[in-house]
Simulated scan of single mutants.
Amino acid sequence: MALPDKVRLVEVGPRDGLQNEASQISTAVKIELVARLGAAGVRHIEAASFVSPKWVPQMADSREVMAGIERRNGVIYAALTPNLKGFEGALASGVDEVAVFTAASEAFTQKNINCSIAESLSRFTPVIEAARANGIRVRGYVSTVLGCPYAGDIAPAQVAAVSRELLDMGCFEISLGDTIGTGTPLKAKRMLEAVAREVPIGQLAAHFHDTYGQALANLYAVLEEGLAVVDASVAGLGGCPYAKGASGNVASEDVIYLLQGLGIRTGIDLELLAQTGNWISAQLGRSNGSKVGQAMACS
Rank of each mutant, 00 (worst) to 15 (best):
Thr109Glu: 08
Ser49Cys: 08
Gly245Cys: 00
Glu106Ile: 06
Pro149Asp: 04
Ala205Val: 05
Asp96Leu: 09
Pro241Ser: 10
Gln260Asn: 06
Arg71Ser: 01
Ala107Tyr: 00
Phe87Pro: 06
Leu258His: 13
Pro185Val: 09
Gly285Glu: 13
Ser116His: 06
Gly293Leu: 08
Ala107Cys: 00
Thr81Gln: 04
Gln294Thr: 15
Asp231Phe: 14
Val12Ser: 12
Thr179His: 05
Asn249Leu: 08
Trp279Asn: 15
Phe172Glu: 15
Ala157Pro: 13
Gly236Cys: 07
Val195Gln: 01
Pro126Tyr: 06
Lys30Leu: 03
Arg72Met: 13
Asn134Thr: 01
Ser175Gly: 09
Val145Gly: 02
Pro156Arg: 11
Phe172Asp: 15
Gly17Pro: 01
Leu33Asp: 03
Pro241Asn: 11
Glu129Asn: 06
Glu129Asp: 13
Lys54Phe: 11
Tyr77Asn: 02
Val42Cys: 07
Asn83Met: 12
Ala131Lys: 00
Ala103Asn: 01
Leu258Lys: 10
Gln110Ser: 06
Leu84Val: 15
Ala221Glu: 09
Lys187Ser: 04
Cys148Asp: 11
Ala297Val: 04
Tyr212Ile: 09
Asp16Thr: 06
Val12Gly: 08
Gly147Ser: 01
Gly89Glu: 09
Gly13Arg: 00
Gln19Phe: 03
Leu204Phe: 06
Cys171Leu: 14
Ile136Pro: 00
Ala133Ile: 09
Cys115Ala: 13
Ser252Ala: 14
Asp61Asn: 06
Trp55Leu: 10
Arg190Met: 10
Ala92Ser: 09
Ser233Cys: 05
Thr266Ile: 11
Val145Tyr: 05
Gln260Ile: 01
Ile69Cys: 05
Leu273Phe: 07
Ala47Lys: 12
Gly140Leu: 03
Ser247Asn: 08
Asn20Arg: 05
Val138Pro: 08
Tyr150Gln: 07
Ala22Arg: 09
Gly248Ser: 11
Gly236Trp: 01
Asp168Pro: 05
Gly74Glu: 07
Ser247Trp: 04
Gly238Phe: 04
Val250Glu: 02
Ile45Phe: 08
Gly238Glu: 03
Thr27Cys: 07
Phe108Gly: 05
His207Cys: 05
Ile31Val: 06
Leu91Cys: 07
Gly68Asn: 06
Ala217Asp: 12
Arg15Phe: 02
Asn288Arg: 03
Lys244Arg: 14
Ala133Arg: 14
Leu270Tyr: 14
Val159Thr: 11
Val29Gly: 14
Gln110Arg: 14
Glu70Asn: 14
Leu223Tyr: 08
Asn218Trp: 05
Glu70Thr: 12
Gly68Glu: 07
Leu284Phe: 04
Val42Ile: 11
Ala151Phe: 00
Leu80Val: 12
Val142Lys: 12
Leu80Glu: 10
Ala79Trp: 11
Leu186Pro: 01
Gly86Lys: 05
Gln110Gly: 02
Ala60Ser: 04
Gly263Arg: 11
Ala246Pro: 02
Gln158Ser: 09
Lys30Ala: 12
Gly13Ile: 02
Glu64Ile: 10
Ala206Lys: 02
Val234Arg: 01
Asp168Gly: 12
Phe172Tyr: 12
Ala28Gly: 10
Val292Ser: 15
